[in-house]
Measured scan of single mutants.
Amino acid sequence: MAAGGDHGSPDSYRSPLASRYASPEMCFVFSDRYKFRTWRQLWLWLAEAEQTLGLPITDEQIQEMKSNLENIDFKMAAEEEKRLRHDVMAHVHTFGHCCPKAAGIIHLGATSCYVGDNTDLIILRNALDLLLPKLARVISRLADFAKERASLPTLGFTHFQPAQLTTVGKRCCLWIQDLCMDLQNLKRVRDDLRFRGVKGTTGTQASFLQLFEGDDHKVEQLDKMVTEKAGFKRAFIITGQTYTRKVDIEVLSVLASLGASVHKICTDIRLLANLKEMEEPFEKQQIGSSAMPYKRNPMRSERCCSLARHLMTLVMDPLQTASVQWFERTLDDSANRRICLAEAFLTADTILNTLQNISEGLVVYPKVIERRIRQELPFMATENIIMAMVKAGGSRQDCHEKIRVLSQQAASVVKQEGGDNDLIERIQVDAYFSPIHSQLDHLLDPSSFTGRASQQVQRFLEEEVYPLLKPYESVMKVKAELCL
């Protein structure tokens, strides 16, 4: 049975990233139509530049190519590739079939990587351009969430054990800070992308030097003109047959890092959902379990974690691919890159769409948070109580021993009897502590235990987050809708 299948058929496997999760716009960027249309555009740009620099290419040939950029006979191309065992030459023939007058000058002087690699770089750039505003929107939604809850005390956790208090907004800023680093890295790697350009079979530009009869300047002009037509500021000066596969490492490393950030955020949300302090959106008709109707599973956060793990592992592909590119190139890269580049971007696209949807509907339960604080705060307040007693004339050592005994009794009630923490009640009825009984409410005010959390939130948002989001103001209103 021949390899390949009808990918629109229910009898043929289709990647869930495309069929179930990723956005239509990201799927289109990695589609065959987008790819092969870009090949034709690159052939047109090459012909236009070659004509401008004096090669015998007519206006009629150029116009014929322009008129057929979208006229792609995919069936013919597939048949040609089956016959020739070469995808680029299959599309040269297919393009030439609908451009008979231009057929002889299509791909003039070029090698397969002229269309293959340059198209990949265009796709990487455009895919990054799709991700950047999506990530900015996630940051914006979380920034709104953090600002609104900047002063809401909550129990902090280290080692997932109760620690000092923080605020809900401050905790959210930990998430935002990681995503801001990801946004900066995505922008950097996007701006650092260079075009492969017009380089020939081993990167020496020998074929173009021959076409222009040894004119170095025209060869350099050709490279520059096509690079500018493709919208790049610069091209690699040095290439082998391909652009260095280190570029793929750079791009997928940034995406993998984004995956790590999203995994951490969504894990926190899942843990908070278990504590009943916070939940992701839950639709009115949504079913959490087929057997347990009360369940409210954090399905979206779980999906993000599941896909983020996949995204983090994909960076190993370009690392290994770059390491086995012998001399000017081997074909070890080809099949692998067809999979890992598309999957990385479709996965990143999915987790950003999902995280935006989550961040637009996060639900906080202040009463649950308050109750958990009441359970733990008495123990945390013991040092403040000791200091207040010393100020009232008591002995630190005597007070410490009193607190120690009462704390152990209260802990026994919590752990052995399943009761509430009654340390404060014990202190309130103990005559030894009568000098500070009137101060206990103040000493137990949760806001006095959150330090500068709310001020940190305000400063972080104003100095770091809002300036970073400013270039994306025009796209901030787009909502994230999930079908599944």
Score class of each variant (00 low, 15 high):
Ile238Asp: 01
Pro281Trp: 00
Trp175His: 02
Gln184Pro: 10
Leu352His: 11
Gln164Asp: 01
Tyr114Glu: 12
Asn71Gln: 08
Ser359Leu: 06
Ser306Lys: 00
Lys233Cys: 06
Leu222Ile: 03
Asp215Arg: 13
Gln285Ala: 09
Tyr21Glu: 03
Thr202Gly: 04
Asp215Gly: 15
Phe449Arg: 11
Lys134Gln: 14
Gln455Asp: 01
Ala381Lys: 06
Glu148Ser: 12
Leu443Val: 15
Val138Ala: 10
Ile427Val: 14
Ser359Cys: 13
Gly156Cys: 06
Phe208Gly: 07
Val405His: 05
Lys415Ser: 06
Gln164Asn: 10
Lys264Ser: 07
Ile436Ala: 04
Asp178Leu: 03
Gly116Ala: 11
Lys391His: 07
Ala77Leu: 09
Ile369Pro: 09
Ala230Gly: 06
Gly259Asp: 00
Cys180Thr: 14
Trp43Gln: 11
Val368Glu: 02
Ala103Gly: 12
Leu331Asp: 00
Gly4Val: 13
Met89His: 15
Cys340Arg: 02
Lys415Cys: 11
Arg303Asn: 05
Ala77Pro: 06
Ile238His: 15
Phe95Thr: 07
Arg374Trp: 07
Trp43Ser: 07
Ala256Cys: 03
Gly96Tyr: 02
Ala3Pro: 04
Ala342Ile: 15
Asn118Gln: 00
Phe195Arg: 03
Leu131Gly: 04
Leu183Val: 10
Val478Leu: 11
Glu463Ala: 13
Met89Lys: 00
Ala344Arg: 04
Cys27Asp: 14
Ala260Val: 01
Val413Asn: 10
Thr38Met: 07
Cys399Met: 10
Arg190Asp: 08
Gln61Ile: 09
Gln320Lys: 00
Phe232Gly: 03
Val262Arg: 01
Asp178Ser: 13
Lys470Asn: 09
Phe95Lys: 02
Glu463Val: 12
His7Ala: 08
Lys66Met: 09
Val198Ser: 08
Gln51Trp: 01
Ile62Lys: 04
Gly419Asp: 03
Arg329Asn: 06
Lys367Tyr: 04
Ile373Phe: 02
Tyr13Phe: 08
Val247Cys: 15
Phe157Met: 07
Leu275Val: 07
Pro298Ser: 05
Pro318Asn: 00
Arg270Thr: 00
Glu343Val: 01
Arg452Lys: 07
Val251Glu: 07
Leu84Gly: 07
Ala431Leu: 11
Arg196Asp: 12
Ser359Val: 14
Phe160Ser: 11
Pro153Ser: 08
Ala150Leu: 04
Glu148Thr: 07
Lys295Gly: 00
Gln205Trp: 03
Gln397Ala: 10
Val390Asn: 01
Met181Ala: 14
Phe160Trp: 04
Glu250Ala: 11
Met278Trp: 07
Leu444His: 14
Asp430Pro: 15
Tyr114Thr: 06
Ala102Ile: 04
Thr330Asn: 12
Glu25Trp: 07
Gly8Ala: 12
Thr111His: 00
Leu331Lys: 02
Gln63Glu: 04
Lys415Val: 09
Ala102Gln: 06
Lys233Ile: 06
Lys229Met: 06
Glu250Tyr: 08
Leu319Arg: 00
Leu423Gly: 03
Leu179Thr: 14
Lys477Thr: 15
Cys340Ser: 08
Ile238Glu: 04
Leu155Ala: 04
Ile249Tyr: 15
Gln456Lys: 06
Ala90Thr: 05
Leu84His: 11
Leu131His: 12
Pro133Asp: 09
Val478Gly: 13
Gln286Tyr: 00
Leu444Cys: 00
Ser253Ile: 08
Leu346Cys: 02
Ala127Gly: 12
Arg14Ala: 09
Met278Ile: 11
Gln325Arg: 04
Gln210Asp: 09
Tyr114Arg: 04
